[in-house]
Write a protein that binds this DNA or RNA. Structure first.
Length: 275
DNA sequence: CGCCAGGGGAGCT
DNA sequence: AGCTCCCCTGGC
């Protein structure tokens, strides 16, 4: 167990921002997260965070995972003070960070995300992990499951994952797994590409369109210039940015701004009482 | 080329 | 009871 004081970090906001589907609230101020083959719990009170791992594991894995070497105050302070909508959204979601998640896991997660809600996406992924992942035990002796490797899904019948509640997305996931295992598409090469090329390559995967490709780029490749446009974002943009979102002002980290807007639309507007 | 139906089913109002 | 859901594919 280690403790850290961290600025611009709110584990609840990160969990609720819908970029990670393997994070869950376990107690009032405590969240769990499964990443790679690891399990972690984070208790947060204000800026004080307690991580359930040791110093070494924190430094070698979780520091990078939570993007703690990046100072988000620069992003936050760059917001145009005249842009009241964005100022408000950023104020509301100041503790959000763009996690460094695994490319394959993000690809499958956002294939499943299409035309789907976050609660159900979590359940689909949980089902996948329980059935095709590896069983592990956390520090309390409770079991959890790792995310299945591509090989575990590539040779299934295309409809098999309907058993995991994926519905019509089953064949997207199975065919994508096959493309990766048979190396029609190389994740290793994609990881070395710039945003534009990586996105173009991801679009070749069956079931990956414009929006999903951008989510994979932002959350699985940490290309902060990716700006996924889902229905919420499109609606918010058409309402608040009639002349388009000022992408140029936030060039290179538009995706961070997208997350503030998304989180505000999801959890803030109409949930925060108007005083 | 653009348009749009169809594709699970749970969770929300 | 309906509507929505961080859409994409394929048919027209």
């Amino acid at each position: 167990m280690i403790q850290r004081t961290i600025e611009n970090f709110d584990i609840r906001q990160i969990c609720d921002s819908g970029q990670c589907f393997r994070m869950a609230q376990v107690k009032e101020n405590t969240y769990s997260v499964i990443a790679a083959d690891r399990y972690l719990e984070i208790e947060q009170n204000g800026k004080e965070c307690t991580f359930s791992c040791g110093e070494e594991e924190f430094e070698e894995f979780w520091r990078s995972y939570f993007d703690l070497d990046c100072d988000y105050s620069g992003y936050i302070e760059s917001v145009n003070p005249n842009d009241k909508y964005l100022m408000n959204a950023v104020q509301f979601g100041m503790g959000i960070r763009i996690l460094h998640q695994e490319l394959w896991e993000m690809t499958v997660s956002f294939l499943i995300s299409q035309q789907n809600n976050i609660v159900r996406i979590r359940r689909c992924i949980q089902n996948l992990c329980e059935r095709y992942g590896e069983e592990k035990r956390n520090f309390r002796g409770e079991c959890y499951y790792t995310f299945p490797v591509p090989e575990a899904l590539a040779f299934l019948p295309e409809d098999e994952l309907k058993e995991c509640n994926l519905g019509y997305r089953s064949k997207y996931v199975v065919r994508t797994a096959r493309s990766i295992v048979q190396e029609e598409i190389s994740f290793r090469r994609i990881q070395e590409m710039k945003y534009r090329d990586a996105k173009a390559e991801l679009l070749k995967l069956y079931g990956v369109g414009e929006k999903v490709a951008d989510c994979i780029c932002l959350f699985g490749l940490h290309h902060l210039e990716a700006f996924p446009k889902d229905t919420h974002i499109l609606q918010a943009l058409s309402e608040h940015y009639k002349r388009g979102f000022p992408r140029r002002r936030y060039k290179g980290y538009e995706g961070v701004m997208q997350q503030y807007v998304f989180y505000w639309e999801l959890k803030g507007v109409s949930h925060v009482p108007i005083i």
